[in-house]
Structures are given as structure tokens and as C-alpha cells.
Design a protein around this nucleic acid. Structure first.
Lengths: 342, 342
DNA sequence: TGTTAGCACTCTTTTGGAGTGAGTGCTAAC
DNA sequence: GTTAGCACTCACTCCAAAAGAGTGCTAACA
């Protein structure tokens, strides 16, 4: 069977109505709602077809229809396709300038949650091409050396090293020069056993310190493994009865608290390089089990070359996709502006 | 009216039974439950007295009794009083050694949540007596200077400073010496306008850099204002019907997500210096509005001199106080052991 | 005087049946 | 191809009756 123009119109009308009300939509409603001038009986026939095709379904025999995942998918795709989607009205999404990255990210999550009334998450940018930029050892007190490691992208890591006997300023200077000369500009892969052996040999009796510094360097460079994720507006899920029953809410809350599994969503989004930068996961399309009754809209942001992160908005399947996508886009622009000004 | 021995026994029996079942307790149940060998009629008379005294209350006329906040308070106090509370059985609370503080804290929260089936929170230790220990400026590249600030307790803070023209190694060395000589060992209060003026004057044309470093120092020392709080097991609240209705659950979840207000709980606990280190807040006794239907058990831990933090367990009023307090104590010991071994 | 049996009473919860309303599917006519 | 009409389905609401848990009170007992 074909999805002709009329069926499309009816399907869209059903979905739009359902998005608003959250109640199954009957044939009479559509008959009055649209400008098709068809009787409810005709609509019923069409709806019967649409159901057969899998776009809509009936919660029970004598109820109206609600969209299926396939129906939502059609709707979202159609919406995204109208790519001449005029400059989306700049909704009031205001970010205040924040000098600390984590505060900025928390703020983004919060502002989005407040604007959309859905739950939100944002991952801190992951750094790629991580080269070592600078190492500095300094004496903090008699028995402690502080190693400061700066990685490209200005990620800074500190590491304290305990030493038995004090080191002279001279030794410290030598070690500093040794480390910087040999390591700067290298990536984790480039620091191989050869480099390490040379370093240790040259360090002589201070080989232990070099080892410890190298461990810290390794950790600094692959620090993006445990990626930081901030969430906001988790409580919004209670605004949607279809998510608010104890079982589902509990699972969702757990997912949001143990940010871990949200990571898979981030990976998925970053991996899937599509054109617009906005992706929609409906129901089971989402990689996260507990979100099978949700829709997830994600966007990838890029602050600086290689510094990419993911923003996600999680709500019921009948979320206001139009508004969410608009808000997300606006937010991206704001982030861009903010970051470039800095 | 007096709370004689028999009344106490009956009150405890009521509370214990209610803790288990969560259902109002009737006179017949108590008559069979206890070893008092009293008929239900007698119990009824006693219950009537207890209600008049405010220890228990009736949800409605023809229902059994449930403990009031005052009743819980009596129960908890009585429990805490048996201070010869034998070495509480070491429940299996296992912490794995973690080198990173934040991971350790997250683990503590998680383990507690799993063991008790309640929601938990833990605040990162707050540092007091914050003296400046060490400052180090180093050049990262042509236009950036990295300031590393170490505060007593080995809290480290990094701050990047942009400079227009490059600084010579010599200048940097001078600045380092200048800063360290004048600032080390001082607290925030001790760095006054006088010190600042002297510093700036001596720094000459590099006064800007000194200002920026001072700002960073100030921030490092009072960093404990935005204290870090980790939570776990928020979803456990769904296990208790009296907390699981949407309205309450939503409020609680919000409290846990916006860790901010949990801070007041931490402050409260740290301020109230009592003997055992364990405190119980029942219902409205808690400083947090959204926890008026909960009980909160808190403990203060101290890893090192002046490094204090708070652990909190949040559950329904009918929580298993005995077990919670036992588990908390065990956890404190484990933390002690772990930290001393390191 | 404290304890108990007995009974009327209260109030919640469960059950089931009747009624209502929204909506469908089918058929026959236009 | 479209529509009016009608029988039918099913969730939901309402109500009344019944069941069940528990109380308070009274009178009797040791």
C-alpha cells in the first residue's frame, strides 16, 4: 500500500494532535481538525489502512489511535526534511558567561531543561589528538614533588610524588629539562618502551620519579575515558504520565544518576557523523535500554578543534520535537558565540 | 501521664512492627506479638493513652496506629542509649582501595546505598586552616603562563594566564621568588591590601600578572564554598510507597540532583558537634524542606586533621535505624583503616 | 483497681453491576 | 470513492452493598 498525500496529512494530523493532548485520537477529531473536509467514516477507513501499514496503533479495540515508533519516525523525518526551515525564532535561551568549563556546562544543561521541560544531559568535551605540551616538576616540601602536566587543549593534571630524601634544585632542573626535551609534542602512542628506557637511564638514580611521572602522563592523556556528564531536570519526567510510573521512573532516574550508561549515548552520537549534527532516537532506536519509552534528541557541539561533546534531551516519545530541535540549534549558536568571544 | 515500662514496651512493639510492615498496627497484633500476655482490650487502653501523649497517631478512626515523629524520636533515642551496643556485627561493607578521592567517595556512597536500600550522599572533605603552601609560575607557550597553587592539605589549583609579550626565564624566576617569599604560609585573611600593594610595587610592569595570581589564590583558598557532593541510590526511594508518589518523589529527586540544598544538611551536621558523630533527623527535624517525610541519618568522617566530610542516608521515617547506624559505623571504621594504610 | 470479653460502631477497601461515552467496523446507499 | 447509520466494544465512572480491620465503651471478673 502507498502512503499517498492524503494519508500523510491524516497521519500528521493524528501525531500533532497526540503530541498536544497525549490522548488517543479518534476519527471524528481528525475530521473536524483538518481542512480535508472528509467525514469521520472516511477517516476511519484511512486510519485502518495506516494501522495496517504500522504507522499508528490502537491501545484497545474501542479507542482512538496513537502513533507507533514508525509513525513518529515518519513525522520527525518529514519535519527535518523541510530543510528550508526558516531561521528558527531565537527563543530566549540565555547563557551567562562563565569562566569555568564545568559551570558553563551545568548551566547549559539547566537552561535547556527549563526551556524544554524535559530531562537534559551534556558531556564535557573530549579531547582528541592529545599531545603532551609541557611538564613541570617542583618541590612542594621536603618530601613531596609536584608534577604538573599540560596537554594540548590546555588540560592540566597535577600529581604529587613522595620522595624519601630531598632533591637539590639542580637535580630538579635537570629532570625538568630531561623530561621536557624528550617528551614534549608526543602522543601516548609515541611514548614507547624505547623512549622510556632512554629516559630512565638518563635519570639515573631518579628513575623512580620518572616512572611515576610517566604514569601520570599516561593518565592525563587518556583522561577522556571517564568522561564527565552533567544532567539537569531529571524531575521533568514526572510531568509525563507515560514515564512517571514507578518502575519506569526508577529506571530512568538510575540511568541519570549513574551517568555511566549515558556515555554510550555520547559515543553513539559522536560516532554517527551525519550532516545536520542533530539526531533523534525514538523508543528502541536509543542505545539505552531504560529509554525505550522515551525519545532522545542529541546534538554534537564543538568548542574548539577536536573538542567535541554531546548534548542530549530526553523526554516522552510525544515530545515537542519541533521546539526541542529549535532550542538545541539556538543553544549551539549561543555556545559558538560565547566561546569565540572568550 | 507517665511513660511507664509497659507503655514503653508497647510503644516499641508498635514501632518495630510498623518499621517492618509499613501498615498501621492494631491492638490484636500487639497482644499476640509481645510477651506481655495482655488482651487486645488492655492494649487498646494503653494505645489510647500513648496517642493522647502524642507518641502514636491514627490515620483514620477505624485504623491501627502509626508512630508520630515524637514516637520515632523516643525509639531512636532509646536505641542510641543502649550504648553498650555490642560491637556491631561487621556487615559486609567492602571498600576497595582507590587512589583518587572522588572515586573513593563515589564508591562509599554506592556501597552504602546497596547495603541499606536507601538513598545516600557524601560530601567531599572540606579543608580548614587553608594556608598557602607553594606557588609556581611556568611558561606553557609564547602567550600563556601557568600558575600552580598548592594549599595546605595538598589541594592543588591551576590557573592559566594570558600574556601579550613573552616573559624571559629570568623574569619568571623573579616573580616566582617574589610570590613565594611574600605569600607562603599565609591564610586568606592574612593577605591584606598592604601585602598586595607591596607585591604589586615590586612586580613593576608585571603587576597585572600578580593581580591575576592573587585572584586565583583567593579562589583556591575559599574553594570549599562550592563543596562537592556525591549521591547514590536515589532510585531506592521508589521502594517505599510513602515516598514514591509523584509529587514527593519529584521533589526528592530534584534535591538530589541539585546537590546544592544537600549542602545545608552538611553544614548542619558539621556544626552540631555531638559525641557519637551520628545524628538522626526525623521528619521536620531535617533542615531540608523536601525531606519532611523522610528520616536522615548522618555521620561525620575525618580523614586527616581538619579534613571533615559528611555521609548521609535518606529513607522513609520507618527506616531500619538499627541497621543503618550499624552500617554507617562500620563504614567509618573502614574509611579510617583505608586512609591510615595509605 | 487493673484486666478482659463482648458488642456496637466507624471507616476503608473490595466487589460487582449499571450506565455512559468515545470510538470503531461494517453495510448499504449516494 | 464517500458517507450516513447502526451495532458493538471497551474503558471509565458511579453507586451500593459487603467484607474486614480496628476502635471505644461498658459491664463483669479476679
Amino acid at each position: 500500500m502507498q502512503l499517498d498525500e492524503r494519508k500523510k496529512k491524516i497521519l500528521q494530523a493524528i501525531i500533532r494532535n497526540y503530541l498536544e493532548t497525549g490522548e488517543p485520537v479518534g476519527s471524528r477529531t481528525i475530521s473536524k481538525y483538518t481542512d480535508l473536509n472528509l467525514s469521520s467514516a472516511t477517516i476511519r477507513n484511512e486510519m485502518s489502512d495506516l494501522e495496517e501499514m504500522g504507522y499508528i496503533l490502537q491501545p484497545h479495540t474501542s479507542a482512538g489511535r496513537i502513533p507507533s515508533d514508525k509513525g513518529y519516525r515518519f513525522y520527525v523525518d518529514a519535519m527535518m526534511e523541510e530543510k528550508d526551515r526558516e531561521i528558527e525564532e531565537i527563543k530566549e535561551v540565555y547563557l551567562e558567561k562563565e569562566d569555568k568549563m564545568d559551570l558553563l556546562l551545568k548551566q547549559v544543561a539547566k537552561v535547556l531543561a527549563q526551556n524544554t521541560n524535559y530531562a537534559t544531559m551534556i558531556s564535557a568535551p573530549q579531547y582528541h589528538r592529545n599531545k603532551l605540551k609541557f611538564i613541570q616538576l617542583s618541590r612542594v616540601d621536603e618530601h613531596q614533588i609536584l608534577a604538573v602536566i599540560v596537554v594540548e587543549g590546555n588540560v592540566i593534571k597535577n600529581h604529587l610524588i613522595s620522595v624519601d630524601e630531598g632533591l637539590s634544585d639542580e637535580t630538579l632542573l635537570k629532570l625538568n629539562i630531561l623530561l621536557n626535551t624528550n617528551l614534549n609534542g608526543l602522543t601516548l602512542e609515541e611514548i614507547n618502551l624505547g623512549t622510556i628506557a632512554v629516559l630512565k637511564q638518563q635519570a639515573g638514580i631518579h628513575g623512580d620519579i620518572v616512572s611515576e611521572v610517566l604514569d601520570a602522563v599516561a593518565e592525563a592523556i587518556r583522561a577522556d575515558e571517564d568522561l564527565e556528564i552533567y544532567t539537569s531536570g531529571t524531575n521533568n519526567i514526572f510531568k509525563y504520565p507515560e514515564l512517571a510510573d514507578n518502575q519506569k521512573a526508577s529506571e530512568l532516574i538510575t540511568t541519570f544518576e549513574e551517568k555511566q550508561s549515558l556515555g554510550t549515548l555520547v559515543q553513539e552520537t559522536l560516532a554517527d557523523e551525519n550532516n545536520t549534527g542533530i539526531q533523534v532516537y525514538i523508543g528502541n532506536e536509543s542505545p539505552i535500554q531504560s529509554m525505550r519509552d522515551c525519545s532522545v534528541v542529541t546534538a554534537t557541539y564543538e568548542l574548539d578543534e577536536g573538542m567535541k561533546g554531546t548534548i542530549g534531551i530526553i523526554g516522552p516519545k510525544r515530545m515537542d520535537y519541533d521546539k526541542v530541535i529549535g532550542t538545541l540549534k539556538t543553544m549551539m549558536h549561543q555556545l559558538d558565540d560565547l566561546y569565540k568571544k572568550k
